[in-house]
Amino acid sequence: MFVLVNLKAYPCDPVEVATAAADVADDSGVRVAVAPQAAHIDAVSETGVETWAQHVSPNEHGSHTGSTLAEAVADAGAEGTLLNHSENRLKLADIDASLDAAERADLETIVCANNPAQIGAAAALGPDAVAVEPPELIGTGTPVSSADPDIVTAAVDAAARVDGDVDVLCGAGISTGDDLVAASDLGSTGVLLASGVAKADDPRAALEDLVEPLR
């Protein structure tokens, strides 16, 4: 089970969260990664935790002021990138180009989508994984695996019909170990979460509780 903690632009200490995530991953054997702001990728990577970018832009080297170059985040220590998060939507052509950029930089990829139909379209572009995240549940503490489990199973089926090698993760409202177990039971190979760890008073304790059922 893959646990990816997206720090978004929350006012947390990215190094503190990353250090906790690295320790919890080592202690539990669970794959845990952290996706900080682009400016913090280097510092987070230095903790030893698996580090992801929150986004890479659909362009190569050149005159692209304000872009997030895939090669730059890889040089800073990122091993993968999210794409098309509900808070940073892309056009289909741009998702495709960003996937090409990530491939150039040897970054693993997860493309987010709102529903099973979009999951199928995203899977057709050939990412390593897709993640279903109904936007109305993001940050609510109500996991999609309990609010609407059919979305998760339908997303798994949609991806499998297109490309059986594309993993399916689920996000939105994930915060407890029970949420991870439920996601796994529905066919998900991992979860995305943010506020449950990034906003926690004790990120280490939140992560330990999260992975406890997987030990």
Rank of each mutant, 00 (worst) to 15 (best):
A21Q: 01
A38N: 12
D209G: 09
F2K: 00
R104K: 06
D75V: 11
C170I: 10
G196F: 00
E103W: 03
S184R: 10
A124G: 10
E103L: 06
T51L: 03
D42Q: 12
D178V: 08
E87G: 13
E87R: 08
A159G: 09
A205S: 12
K199A: 15
G196Y: 02
I138C: 04
E208Q: 10
D165A: 15
A123C: 11
D157I: 08
P203H: 00
R104Y: 06
A121W: 07
Y10D: 03
E108I: 14
A122Y: 07
V5N: 00
E71R: 15
V211M: 00
T109G: 13
L137C: 00
D94A: 15
R31F: 14
L207V: 06
E212D: 14
V191W: 11
L125F: 07
P149Y: 12
D201P: 13
I110V: 15
D96Y: 13
T19E: 11
L107G: 15
E16S: 14
A43D: 12
G171E: 07
S67H: 12
D128K: 10
T68V: 14
S63M: 13
G120K: 06
A113V: 05
V15A: 13
P135M: 08
P143T: 12
S175N: 09
D128T: 15
G196C: 04
A155W: 05
D96E: 11
A155G: 03
L207F: 04
S188D: 02
L99N: 04
K8G: 00
G141R: 04
L214C: 01
I110R: 04
A102L: 05
V181R: 12
V197D: 04
I41P: 05
N59Q: 14
S67G: 07
A182R: 12
A101H: 03
L186M: 11
L207P: 08
V30R: 01
Q118G: 08
T109C: 12
N84S: 08
R31N: 14
V211P: 00
H40E: 14
G173P: 04
A205R: 10
L107E: 07
D94K: 07
V162E: 12
T51I: 01
A35S: 15
V17K: 00
T109M: 13
I119C: 06
P11D: 03
D26R: 15
A76L: 09
L214R: 03
I119D: 06
L7P: 03
N6V: 06
P149G: 14
P134E: 09
A183E: 08
L192P: 14
I174V: 09
S57K: 04
A20G: 06
L169T: 01
T176N: 04
C12F: 00
Q37D: 12
T176Q: 01
V3M: 00
D27H: 01
P11S: 02
A205N: 10
I95Y: 02
V132N: 10
A158K: 06
A70M: 02
Q54M: 14
D163Q: 08
A53N: 03
L4V: 14
P116G: 11
D150H: 10
D202V: 03
A129C: 04
V197T: 01
G120A: 15
L210G: 04
L186W: 12
T51N: 02
